[in-house]
């Protein structure tokens, strides 16, 4: 039985997806990925990850709406969401908060920060 913590990465840039996946797997996390918003939504529902790392600029369904949809759903609102995006404007950060994301990290990011945030949010649960 796998005791590993499952993390879902929703990111449309393949190279970015790969890099984060490598990092997380090296830190003993089980990783599932999605390349667009709607795939992200369905994988979140079927796989029930312990945490979601979410990009904003996604095809089909953007990150903000995806986040809000998950947060409004009784079954999934308790999954912590970290928004990881190149959008750095204050308006975007505020919107992220409004949509219910637990954290907002801008790219380029320091992997130590991401890992620290992940561990902090998982510990809170």
């Amino acid at each position: 039985m796998s005791e590993k913590v499952k993390i879902l990465i929703v990111e449309d840039e393949a190279e970015m997806r790969e890099a984060i996946k490598l990092r997380l797997e090296a830190n003993q996390f089980e990783v599932i990925t999605a390349a667009d918003g709607s795939e992200g939504l369905s994988k979140a529902r079927t796989e029930k990850p312990n945490l979601i790392i979410l990009d904003i600029m996604l095809p089909k369904l953007d990150g903000f709406r995806l986040c809000r949809m998950l947060k409004f759903d009784e079954n999934y609102k308790n999954i912590p969401v970290i928004i990881l995006t190149a959008k750095t404007q204050k308006t975007d950060i505020n919107r992220g908060k409004e949509m219910g994301a637990e954290a907002y990290i801008t790219k380029p990011f320091k992997s130590e920060e991401l890992l620290a945030e992940i561990n902090e949010l998982l510990a809170k649960k």
Binding site: M16, L22, A26, M57, K107, P108, F109
Partner: peptide
């Protein structure tokens, strides 16, 4: 400004993370 910012940051973040992975001995 907003679009350029995003367009420039995305590749930077990939480069940084890739380098970071190698430095940290993950690979």
């Amino acid at each position: 400004v907003s679009t350029s910012s995003h367009e420039l940051r995305t590749p930077l973040s990939i480069i940084r993370e890739n380098i970071s992975l190698i430095i940290d001995g993950v690979l």
